[in-house]
Computed example of a mutant assay.
Amino acid sequence: MPERTLNFGAYGARGIKGYEAVARQLDALAGFVATPVTARRGLLARLRYLTRSDQSRQAARAAGLTVTDRTLRAWLRGERNPSKRNLERIETAYRAVRRQNVSRYLLARLNREGRGTRVEFHPLNQSQVLRPRQRVVAYRTLNVRRWDRIVEAWAAGDAQALDDAWIYDAVVDLGSEWGQYEYVTNIGFAA
Rank of each mutant, 00 (worst) to 15 (best):
D163A: 13
E182M: 05
L29Q: 10
D54A: 14
R98Q: 03
V97A: 03
R98G: 00
S103V: 01
V136K: 13
R131F: 09
L142V: 01
S53A: 11
A45V: 11
Q160D: 12
R73S: 12
T141K: 10
D169L: 08
R118D: 02
L26Q: 01
A191C: 12
V171Y: 04
I187W: 07
Q180F: 01
P36R: 10
P123S: 06
R115C: 02
L162K: 05
R99A: 07
I167L: 15
Q55W: 02
A30H: 04
A34R: 15
R135C: 06
T5A: 08
A74W: 07
V119G: 03
R46C: 09
G114N: 10
N101G: 12
W178Y: 13
R46L: 09
T35N: 10
W178F: 14
Y181D: 05
R24P: 00
I187P: 03
F8Y: 13
G18D: 06
H122Q: 09
T117L: 06
R70H: 13
V172M: 09
G12F: 09
S83Y: 02
I150D: 02
L6S: 05
R146I: 06
A161K: 11
Y181F: 15
D163V: 00
V33F: 10
T66M: 12
Y139C: 00
E79V: 02
A23K: 06
K84P: 00
A60T: 04
S56K: 14
I167A: 09
A190W: 11
A62V: 12
R145T: 14
G64S: 14
Q25T: 09
V151L: 02
I187D: 03
R133S: 05
N143T: 15
L110V: 01
N86Q: 08
V33C: 09
R57A: 12
T185D: 04
T68A: 13
R80L: 08
R109Q: 14
D148H: 02
I90A: 04
Y181Q: 07
A153C: 02
T38Q: 15
A62Y: 10
A153E: 02
L47T: 09
T38H: 13
G9Y: 08
S56M: 13
A170C: 15
T66L: 14
L162A: 05
L6K: 12
D173I: 01
L72W: 13
V171E: 09
Y183F: 15
D173Q: 14
R77D: 08
I167E: 04
L130F: 07
V144I: 13
N7M: 12
Q128T: 03
N125M: 01
Y139W: 14
T66E: 13
G15I: 12
L106N: 03
Y94C: 05
L107R: 11
I90R: 07
R112V: 03
R46K: 13
R89F: 08
L76Y: 00
S127N: 08
K84Y: 03
D27G: 03
L50C: 03
R104V: 00
R85Q: 05
I150C: 05
N125P: 00
S127K: 11
D164R: 11
T185P: 07
R41P: 06
G78E: 04
D27E: 07
L6N: 05
D169S: 12
L43M: 15
L142D: 01
L87W: 01
E152D: 06
E177F: 03
